[in-house]
Each structure stands twice: as structure tokens, then as C-alpha cells.
């Protein structure tokens, strides 16, 4: 554990909590892509199956359980509890265009051709593109509430901190997880455009982020 990974995990946790509380308090999931949230729940489910096979640390186990619970709770709020507020017509990204290539790639490019390992690889590849339905929805509607942009900001910050973590681990431990690093770089790139809009629009102005 190093400071970058710890801060990264905390940003990830903050992002998920921000989203959950936003929906819970406003009793609305307007502007939120349910598809992205289902993909994240799928990411955590397929990655954290090792909860049953290997113990790493109390921290690791607790965080995995918390992420899983919050991911499914968020999906529950969007699709069941506050379903009437869900903008399904704006959430029109075709997730099969992500799932099929990601599933195919995880069979082709993995560390070991074993069920748990393929599922772990699938989760890594899927996480790198899981935010796309949300970004697509913002592009389509042309705006996002500031609280939604704070969620995306913390999610992007988590990714950026993980890149720093990998640089650190490479130099201190010689650790290099090629699949995670390549996917992580791809994932972080998706946030760059958003970061630019966040700093120029949301932080300087107030209220919603509107696209030019």
C-alpha cells in the first residue's frame, strides 16, 4: 500500500458515495446512466470473486464488500426505487457494443486461461469503458448537474491516482501489471475531455455543466 493507491481508493469510495447520496436525497436519478451503474456492478462482481478464494488484507476485503454493496444499492435505486425518474430514453448507449468486444478480448489476452482469471481480466477491460454510457448521456443531453460532475471528477481522480500508484510500484517493487496498466491508461484518457470541461465550466461557474 502506498499513498497514491490509498488516496485513489478513497476517491473511488467518495465518488460512489456522492452518487448514491445524490440519488437517495433527491429521490431522483435524473441525468444518471443506469447502464453505466449496471456495468460497474458487473465489474465489481466479476473482479471480486476472489473474496472466496484468497485473503489479501482486512482493508482489501472490507473495501471489496463496500464497493459491491454500494454498486448494487445504486442499481436498485435507479431501476426499482426511483425508476420513474430514470431517463431511459437518454440512456441509449448500446452496451452490447462494449460487452461483446470486452468479453472477446478477455478470452484472448489474459494472464492465465482459467475461469477466475478470465473474469478478472473481463472486469479490468470492462471498467475501462464502463463510464462511456454516462459520458454519452451527458453529450446527448448537453448538460449535467454539478453533483453528477463531482461524481465523475472523483472517479477520474481515482484513475489518475492509480496511474501514479503503478509508477510508484514499478520503481519500488518492480511490480508491473500490464493488463491493468494499459486498461487504466485508456480509462484515464476518457476522463481528460471531461476534466477540461469540469475545470473550465463547473468550478468557475455554478450549477450545471453545459456543453459548448
Amino acid at each position: 500500500m502506498n499513498i497514491f493507491r490509498l488516496l485513489g481508493d478513497m476517491c473511488h469510495l467518495v465518488a460512489i458515495i456522492i452518487l448514491f447520496l445524490k440519488i437517495w436525497r433527491s429521490k431522483s436519478c435524473a441525468g444518471i446512466s443506469g447502464k453505466s451503474q449496471v456495468l460497474f456492478a458487473l465489474v465489481f462482481t466479476t473482479r471480486y470473486l476472489d473474496l472466496f478464494t484468497s485473503f489479501i488484507s482486512v482493508y482489501n476485503t472490507v473495501m471489496k464488500v463496500v464497493f459491491l454493496v454500494l454498486a448494487y444499492a445504486t442499481v436498485y435505486l435507479i431501476y426499482l426505487r426511483f425508476r420513474s425518474t430514470y431517463n431511459s430514453e437518454s440512456d441509449s448507449f448500446r452496451v452490447e457494443f462494449l460487452l461483446v468486444p470486452v468479453a472477446g478480448l478477455s478470452f484472448l489476452e489474459n494472464y492465465a486461461f482459467a475461469p477466475l482469471e478470465i473474469l478478472w481480466t473481463f472486469s479490468i477491460y470492462l471498467e475501462s469503458v464502463a463510464i462511456l454510457p454516462q459520458l454519452f448521456m451527458i453529450t446527448k443531453t448537453g448538460e449535467a448537474e454539478s453533483i453528477t460532475t463531482h461524481y465523475l471528477f472523483f472517479l477520474g481522480l481515482y484513475r489518475a491516482l492509480y496511474l501514479a500508484n503503478w509508477v510508484w510500484r514499478y520503481h519500488t517493487e518492480g511490480f508491473f501489471d500490464q493488463i491493468a496498466v494499459v486498461s487504466g491508461v485508456v480509462q484515464t484518457i476518457f476522463y481528460c475531455d471531461f476534466f477540461y470541461l469540469y475545470f473550465t465550466k463547473v468550478l468557475r461557474g455554478s450549477g450545471k455543466m453545459t456543453l459548448p
Binding site: 484468497s54 482489501n60 482469471e117
Partner: peptide, 10 residues
């Protein structure tokens, strides 16, 4: 190639 490390990150 041989798979040797645990996935210790979240």
C-alpha cells in the same frame, strides 16, 4: 507464461 502474482489491488 506462468501466472505468479495475486491481484492485490481494488
Amino acid at each position: 507464461r506462468e501466472f505468479t502474482f495475486q491481484h492485490d489491488e481494488l
